[in-house]
Structure formats: C-alpha cells, structure tokens
Simulated scan of single mutants.
Amino acid sequence: MSRPGTPVTVTVAREGGGEITVPVPRLTVELPARRGGVVYRNRDPELDLSLSATADGVGFVPVVWSERTRVAWDLRRSSSVASAVICGAGAWPVRVALALAVADVLRAGRDDLRTVVTYADRPLPAPRQLAIPHEVLVSHGGHTRVRAVWEVTPEWYAPDWLAGLSPDRATAATA
C-alpha cells in the first residue's frame, strides 16, 4: 500500500465538529504473522510496562483470539496506556498503524482522556459493547480513500458518544 518515503496521512472528524489531518507513522513493533494480539501506546513514551514497548511507547501483547477483548480492556483500565488496537493474526501493519493514529486523535479530543480501543479490521464486539465506525480519509501518494476505523467501547458510553457528535451526524446516528 505504501511506497518507502511516501507519507500516509489520515483525516479524522473531530467529535463535536471539524476535522484534523495527522500523519500515520510507520508501526515500530513487529507483528507476528501467525499471532494476533493488542498493539498499545503508552501515555509516557519513557515508561516501559515491561511488555517490550519501543522507544516511542508502542508495544505488542500477543494473545489468543478469545482473550483479545479482555487484554484490551485490562490495558484500557491502565492509567499508563493511551491507545490500544486489537489485531488478528496476519494484520497489515499499515492498518494497525492507521487504527492507532485514529485512536490517538479520538483520545486527544475527549475531555476525560480515557484509553481508546480500536480494531484494525471490522470487529465482532463482545456482549455489552458498542462498535462505533469512524469514517476517515486516508491519503497516500496523491490518492485518497475512505476507510472505517472501528472503536469498541462499553455500551454505557453510547450517550456520551451521541452527545459528542455534531447535530447533523447525531440525527443520522439516531435515525
């Protein structure tokens, strides 16, 4: 998808209106081809959770597929983790990097700064979870594509999410 040296950017709608364009940095952790898990970013890149985080605070926790949500939720409860991405075995690093960049933007735009959990691909949320699609524009080498990055959150955050939408998007979401 990306040629070396060609930047990839993503434009994300901000909750409450407006949008922001940010670069999608190259993923700094190795993703095993046959093992899924959770990629996370520490709030403080200096902090190493002894989970082999890289210098920019990005780490990977390999887990069996049935444990992915539990591990992501454990990381979500950690005060040191900013963002997490659930990814399956063989996940494309560029998709994981995109989901991590979008999670960082979403977290930065929220008052409570709670950890945002996204999926590299379309999720199958567990019971009592809400899967929220965030439509984003991915630009690379003069081409722009629309993609969805999925956020997974407990269902009780639905009212907060709806309240954060711009009025025209909130009407469409509740229709």
Rank of each mutant, 00 (worst) to 15 (best):
V116S: 01
G36T: 03
I132L: 11
V81F: 01
S80G: 09
G5C: 13
D44W: 04
R169V: 11
R35F: 08
V136R: 00
G109L: 00
D160C: 01
G109I: 01
R34L: 11
G90P: 15
V12H: 03
T9H: 15
F60G: 08
P123H: 01
D48T: 13
R70C: 01
R26C: 14
E135I: 12
L130C: 07
P4F: 15
A173D: 00
V85C: 07
V10I: 09
E15P: 15
L49G: 14
A131H: 01
S139T: 14
A13G: 12
V85Q: 00
R77N: 12
S79R: 10
W92P: 03
A89H: 03
R35K: 13
G36W: 03
V94S: 12
V12M: 06
A173G: 03
A99K: 03
A108K: 00
P25H: 01
L49C: 05
D74F: 04
W65E: 10
V116H: 04
E46Q: 07
Q129I: 04
P123W: 04
V61N: 00
S166M: 11
L47P: 05
G18D: 11
V116W: 06
V63R: 05
T144Y: 00
A170K: 12
L162M: 04
R169P: 10
P127F: 10
A126K: 05
D74T: 10
D74L: 06
R70Q: 09
E135K: 05
T69M: 05
D56M: 04
R95E: 12
V94D: 14
R26A: 15
A158N: 02
A126G: 07
S78E: 08
V10M: 05
T174R: 13
S50G: 06
V24N: 00
D111N: 13
D56W: 01
A55G: 07
G16T: 11
R110K: 09
R107V: 13
A13F: 01
D111S: 13
H134E: 06
L75N: 07
I20N: 05
L27G: 12
T118Y: 03
V10F: 02
A108R: 06
V117A: 06
P25M: 02
